[in-house]
Structure formats: C-alpha cells, structure tokens
Design a protein around this nucleic acid. Structure first.
Lengths: 196, 196
DNA sequence: GTGTTTTATGCAGGATTCTATATCATCCTG
DNA sequence: CAGGATGATATAGAATCCTGCATAAAACAC
C-alpha cells in the first residue's frame, strides 16, 4: 500500500538519523507532529507533498524532479558528496584509530567484559561525530595513557576509568545541540571539498 | 496557500507540455483524474506524495531528495540537459565514448582499483555537461594518450595521472556557474576530429 | 462558424491525511 | 533505581485529497 514512496520516506529517516535528530526535534522544526513523523517513517501512511516539503526543508534537503535518464549522473554527485561529508578532523580519526587498535590487541585487559563492548560502541560513534577542540584534547590525553600502559600495565580500575572517559566523550558528541558545536570547520585545514 | 509546492507542480506542467501530452493522456498513464491533474497544475490543491510519484513516473521523472548545498551542481546537470541535450558537441561525445571504450577493454590496467570507478563516474557526468573550448582541447589531448598507449603500455603512474586529469575536467564541469560558460552553442560547428 | 479537443470548474461522496493529546515500552544516564 | 528522552501506537475530529461524473470555457481545427 505504501510502497511507492518508501524509498523517499526511508531517505527522510536516514537523513534525520544521520544528524542525530530526534523525531520530536524534527517535529518542532518542521511543524508536523511527532506521531505523524513516526508513521511516515514507518510507512504506516503516505505523507502529502506539503508535509514532505516541510520535513525536507527542516533537514536541509530539497526535492528535485529529474529525468530518469539523468539519474546516473545525479546519483553520482550525491554519492560523492556523502563520502566527503566527513566533518571529522584527521586528528580525531587518528586518535580513534589508535584506541581501536589497542582494543583489538586483546579484550582480556578488561575486568568487566561488557566494558570492552562499551568501548567498542563508543568508538563506533566517535568515528562519525565531531568533537569540540576541548574534547579533542581530552581524547588526545586519553590515548596518551595507552602509550604509558605499554611499559606500565594498567590496573583494572584504570581501565574502567578509561572506558568511562571515552564513553563520556561519546555522550557529549551524541547529545550535542546541532546549533552550537563545530566552529572548527572554519579554520579546518582538513577537508577541502574538492568533491572527489 | 499552495506555494510550498508550486515549483514542483510547475515542473510537472512544464514536463507534460514539453511532451505534447494532454491532461487526459497523462491522466490515463498516471491513473489520476483529469480534473485532479488540472487542479494540481493550477495549484488549486497540493497533491499527496503518492499522486506526485504516479504523475512523475508517467512523465519519466524521478523524485530526488538532495542536500541543499548540492543544488547548484544538480541544477547544472538539469539545466544543461534540458537544452535538448545538444549543448554537447559531437566531438565531446566522441572523445568521451573513446575513453569509455578504453575503460571497457579492461580494468586490470588500474593499479588502484577505485581509479577505475572514479574514471567511470567522471565519464558519466562528462556525458551530460558541456566543456569549454579549452577543456575540450585538454580532453582531446588526454585521448591522444590512449592512442600512444596502444603500442607503448603506460606505467601505473601514467594511468593515475590520466584518471586525475579526467576527474579535474569533471569537477570543472560540475561546479561551473551556469551563468558563464557555453557560449559555444550558438555558432557550434563542431568538427569531427576523426584521426583514429 | 461548426465541430473537436483541451483545460478549467463544480459538487457529492468516500478515503486519507494530519493535528492534538496521551500512553507505553525501551533505552540511557546519573 | 529514578528521571529523561526516544520511538511506536491509539483515538477523535478537522481538514484535505481524490474520484466520478458533468459541464462550462477556451483553444484549435476544418
């Protein structure tokens, strides 16, 4: 019943989640009801065009009608852009990678087994969410501990603290208000979107 | 009242008229009523998304959700294509076709596998976007290399350079401002350079 | 000008969207 | 564990879409 528009509504959900926006927040920005948004995303009902436009705008998306034969070219542009939409500095990538490799070396360092999972989960998100300069510094300090631990094995408590600290960063990144944050992009020497 | 979606419904009418299709015929193809179509086109009512999809399909159009920041690039493709797709010189088509065939001959020439994909992407866009005379010349020079490589196989580095050069042309075409560019079409006497 | 085709309107309904408001289960954090 | 946030559901009612005719108004032919 609601399958003709599924690909579109799926994109809406994907875009919302990519921005870590809740249905309620999207509701506020778009003017639709949260329950309405839920139903649209689940395919329970097909939105009217007006609603779709409202939601899209709230997500910084535009609705375009394109000739079918041009779809390859357009898909091409969209695909390339999503690759470079990384607002992460290379430093952040680097640090996360470091912790990741440390984790991969062995999970037997963790007194509490679930801590390893927790850490892995945190890293998964930190791979995609930008940190502030301060947080980045914290992350840097944390990885320095790993360095020290090579010659001086950590106590179980130290490992726990480490996991919690990383988790705290994760939470900060996840729950940040999208309106503040990431002033970094201004002087970022990281990415110039040459769109390649 | 019906202003949010006006630009979209206008495109529908434009597309229909461009095909010399009557509202009745579109009605038959899409399954909507003629009166319904009339009201949509006039902005008397806003269609539901399902209806829009039906109509679009009947017109060989696809609905795309695109990030606002990519709209210039996409508008570029759409605008150029609607110029009866004749803004491309046959020379450009010819040269692109040549590279395309060369690519089809085998992807084993690429040291870096993703380079083959990159090249393919570039060609997909160069098939639709016009180049300036200068760029066209560059493209011509590039295809000459292929000629040489037939008797003198290229080094991996040469292949990479080639891919990058084509990509540069692609980027130039994609991000060009629609306002400048393509004065060519007026007095286009594109000559076929059949040197092969 | 007559006749045909196309588009614009009108209206009665049934169907669906959409809002407003609540509730519930779940997950996460402190 | 308590508190907060998130997403899925439910219900009732207002609003709107959409169909199915039917018909008026243009527009275009011969």
């Amino acid at each position: 019943m609601a399958y003709k528009t599924e690909h579109i509504t799926q994109q809406i959900r994907a875009a919302r989640e990519a921005r870590n926006m809740s249905q309620r927040e999207l509701s506020a920005r778009s003017g639709l009801t949260q329950s309405h948004i839920s139903q649209i995303e689940r395919g329970t009902m097909e939105p009217g065009l007006a609603s779709l436009v409202d939601v899209a705008r709230a997500l910084d998306l535009e609705i375009v009608l394109a000739p079918r034969k041009l779809m390859p070219a357009i898909g091409n542009i969209l695909a390339n852009a999503s690759l470079t939409s990384n607002s992460l500095t290379s430093q952040q990538r680097h640090l996360v990678g470091r912790i990741d490799r440390w984790l991969a070396e062995g999970r037997d360092r963790f007194a509490v087994a679930s801590d390893a999972d927790s850490l892995k989960d945190s890293l998964a998100l930190l791979r995609h969410l930008p940190l502030t300069a301060d947080e980045l510094e914290t992350l840097h300090d944390l990885t320095m501990r790993l360095q020290r631990w090579k010659s001086d094995p950590p106590s179980p408590k130290e490992v726990r603290d480490f996991v919690h600290a990383v988790r705290a960063l994760r939470n900060a990144a996840v729950h940040r208000d999208r309106d503040d944050a990431i002033p970094r992009s201004a002087y970022a020497l990281d990415e110039e979107d040459d769109d390649a």
